[in-house]
Design a protein around this nucleic acid. Structure first.
Length: 340
DNA sequence: AAACTATTCAACCGCCGAACT
DNA sequence: CAGTTCGGCGGTTGAATAGTT
């Protein structure tokens, strides 16, 4: 079956639409409706194929289209629906009044997908990534988990592999530098990072014995977080990044240790709230009861990525060790912004 | 100021299923 | 019933723009 593309017809114009073409299309549809898209171009005096006209109308000229930035609610809706529907853009669009599937698709590919990746969430499965990038992206959660376990005085005999340790060391340096450079002067970071001789020794969070003293594998911490010992009700724990930010607490309720609910604002809102860490940012996701045997596989959606200095960097699916170099470089080139 | 790189998004491409002939 | 047409969908492209060196 199938058919040849309608635009293969001789002499039909392709590419960006002119104002004159737009006017003709709008005028024709307002007067006669679109009827048969194939017949429309000739009737409207357009040297375009019907498909091109339909696309132009449905994605751009239609009067009921809402354009501009996506609201936080819209973002949340898209992410939630995408976790349920996958790349069913038309279905997702049907739940977002006045937004087109094309716009949602573009927004996903250019903003939301990256945002999820930066949070260590696989944008396809909507679950935490399991590759080494996840260790970085989910660092706050991982470290919090480690601290949490330490608080509970658990003893674990788990090997920490050298690679993970090395990466954690780099991250520790980064965070330590951030914590000691409250003047927002990124130019001082590289030197500070190079001269940091305080590896694992005095950190307020990395001196955690379970994490480094007893060589607790980071991922294993989460994998084992369903242990009964790991379940605490109605407690809050200090976030390990407290040393350079306002206290962040994890709400631990209902026998769940929850990863952050993922809700994100529009680009404008994200800028305003970037790097802002507040207690409310991490909440128990009561709407997504995940498998408690694997807390890392939360089905929660995204909230804010501003608790990472590398939040604006792009992390592709393809990974390599050079990534870590890039992380350091990017971290040092991007100013850390503190809560206002 | 120019060259280069990264990002955005409008538009196109190719495929599919339903309707039509 | 087979072939054709059509509308719709998701993936991809590439020009325009913004940012960086």
């Amino acid at each position: 079956m199938g058919r040849s593309p309608c635009c293969d017809e001789n002499g039909l114009k392709k590419g960006p639409w002119t104002q004159d073409e737009d006017d003709k299309l709008i005028d024709h549809i307002q007067k006669h409706g679109h009827g048969s898209w194939r017949a429309l171009p000739k009737q409207a005096g357009l040297n375009r194929c019907g498909k091109s006209c339909r696309l132009r109308w449905t994605n751009y000229l239609r009067p009921d289209i809402k354009r501009g930035s996506f609201t936080a609610e819209e973002e949340e809706t898209i992410i939630n629906l995408h976790s349920l529907l996958g790349n069913k853009w038309s279905s997702i669009a049907s739940n977002l009044p006045r937004r087109t599937d094309n716009e949602i698709k573009n927004y996903w590919n250019t903003h939301l997908r990256k945002k999820l990746l930066q949070m260590g969430i696989d944008p396809v499965t909507h679950r935490p990534r399991t590759d080494h990038l996840n260790v970085l992206a989910a660092l706050p959660q991982l470290i919090a988990a480690a601290n949490f376990k330490s608080l509970l005085n658990l003893n674990q005999n788990v090997q920490l592999d050298a690679t993970t340790l090395a990466k954690a060391q780099i991250l520790h340096n980064i965070i330590q530098v951030l914590s000691t450079n409250n003047n927002n002067n990124p130019s001082s970071w590289p030197l500070a990072m190079q001269t940091s001789d305080n590896l694992f020794g005095q950190s307020s969070y990395l001196e955690n014995q379970n994490l480094f003293g007893q060589s607790q594998n980071l991922s294993h911490i989460l994998e084992n977080s369903h242990d009964e010992d790991f379940i605490v009700k109605n407690q809050t724990i200090d976030h390990p990044l407290d040393s350079f930010s306002s206290p962040m607490q994890m709400d631990v309720q209902d026998d769940h240790y929850s990863l952050p609910l993922l809700v994100s604002g529009s680009p404008e809102e994200s800028k305003q709230s970037q790097i802002k860490i507040k207690n409310k940012d991490i909440v128990h996701d009561q709407h997504h009861h995940r498998d408690t045997s694997n807390p890392s596989s939360t089905n929660s959606t995204f909230t804010q990525d501003h608790h990472r200095p590398w939040c604006d960097t792009t992390i592709d699916d393809e990974t390599s060790d050079s990534y870590w170099k890039d992380i350091i470089e990017q971290t040092c080139s991007e100013p850390w912004r503190f809560p206002e």
